[in-house]
Write a protein that binds this DNA or RNA. Structure first.
Lengths: 257, 257
DNA sequence: TCCTTCTATTGATCCAAATCAAAAACAGAC
DNA sequence: GTCTGTTTTTGATTTGGATCAATAGAAGGA
């Protein structure tokens, strides 16, 4: 654990500040030179000058599970890009209903805000570390960093495309279709990060999966059990899924009879 | 009606090309000088030089209801900004289930794509006209048009914020909560465009509303009838809603008991 | 080791919204 | 005006997933 933390009124930890150590890379100066994201990084391939600008404002935080990175309504101070671990973002209703609107892994980028305030809460799913950039300083870079600006726009368009897909899932798919879609997406994103397609790690608990898919934990559990019984997958433990018949899962995900 | 159209295999019209006439403004050169969007336009407030670049690639199309602007999977040739009328975008499943992922009105901007292909179909809800810009030429403008690039990024972040909100609606809200949210959002967007907050025009049919909210037309109709019976609103005709108690609708929308 | 706590699974019952079905309202066309 | 097709509303019934409830695993601590 690194960085000072404070306990919120509900006892959850909130990151105050992070000092870079070991795996997190050093801050500023040469931090980016030690980054191990490779071409996953949104800053990969930036021209020398643009990278220097980014590097000069780069910072780093580490998380342990359930750390809060920021709350809905907070000033949108930073953009984040996980180096390791997983983060979830969610919105809450007054009575406690929760909708998780995204999971972020190694190489992803999040924290965008159109109005200077975060519209959702961000919380660590696992231990990990995140590269971060002051949003205000980032904005100042864009006019002289066309490649960076273009990549940030591209990332936000990718996220928009994800939302279109997820909106279809939430509005029109059945529970089995939702779960099949979710598992395949997790698997595909793992591949994009260079991890294996098939024993897929599900770093989040059932309740996170349920709140992401608009279901309850019971329905998530029952549906996975049914998939297992049909030979579509194996569950050596609750957080590991071996996809035994990805093609069949694909058909289910797409609503193919 | 303007522009050449072709009939698709299903008999729906598809816009091939649009030539500007009357209300649509002329193409190129001075087209933007005749634009009546004012500060609603994403290009409002651009410096002289940036505006000239945009104007040189600007075009215009007119629509009649149900015209298809583009289909899911089409090359993402243009960005669109409605001058009048309304447009819906949606995704379809193989068995015909449909999820509308957005409605666009005067001043909005849509057609973004991260990969050169549209991830959804766009179809006119009403007659109207749209300003449009070749996406490829638009991209070429960004490096030398920092204000434009920044505004396009801001628009895409606004859209992301809408999606976070809509994801909560689809995943966790009840039918009355969905309808109340929808009506209030329509009303608020009308105000932003300079229209009245209360008799709100609902330009789309019940089936579009249902497919946007993840409901059926019967549930939409029943819920509106119940709102009417509770004195929350009046429905002089199916496409006009007078909000009689917006505060109560707000409480319902937010899940307040 | 056992105990406690948390998470996941399984079972029984219920209900909000879907589906099936019909009537009513509306918009054009003539 | 009437006729025709479409959209909206209302009614009856069904059902997928939620809720309520209990059990079974895992993980951590003493």
């Amino acid at each position: 654990m690194t960085g000072r933390v404070a306990l919120g009124i509900d006892g959850t930890r909130t990151i105050q500040e992070g000092r870079a150590r070991d795996g997190c890379g050093r801050e500023g100066n040469d931090a980016c030179l030690q980054c191990n994201l490779g071409d996953l990084a949104f800053c990969h391939g930036l021209p020398e000058g643009e990278l220097r600008g980014l590097m000069s404002i780069q910072g780093c935080v580490r998380t342990t599970p359930q750390d809060t990175l920021f709350n809905e309504g907070d000033r949108a101070t930073y953009l984040y890009s996980p180096l390791s671990g997983a983060v979830k973002i969610y919105k809450l209703m007054a009575d406690g209903r929760r909708q998780i609107t995204g999971f972020f892994f190694r190489g992803d980028l999040f924290g965008f805000s159109p109005n200077g305030l975060h519209g959702y809460t961000a919380e660590a799913v696992t231990a990990g570390s995140l590269c971060r950039f002051p949003a205000a300083k980032m904005e100042l870079l864009y006019p002289d960093s066309p490649v960076l600006a273009r990549e940030v726009l591209r990332r936000s368009m990718i996220k928009l495309a994800h939302f279109h897909e997820h909106t279809l899932l939430l509005g029109r798919k059945s529970a089995p279709e939702k779960l099949a879609s979710f598992l395949l997406t997790l698997s595909q994103r793992a591949v994009e990060r260079g991890d294996s397609a098939s024993p897929v790690l599900i770093p989040m608990g059932r309740s996170d999966v349920a709140d992401y898919l608009g279901l309850t934990i019971e329905t998530v559990s029952r549906t996975l059990t049914k998939f297992k019984a049909s030979g579509l997958l194996e569950l050596p433990n609750p957080s590991t899924v071996a996809l035994r018949d990805p093609a069949a899962l694909r058909r289910i995900a797409d609503g193919g009879i």
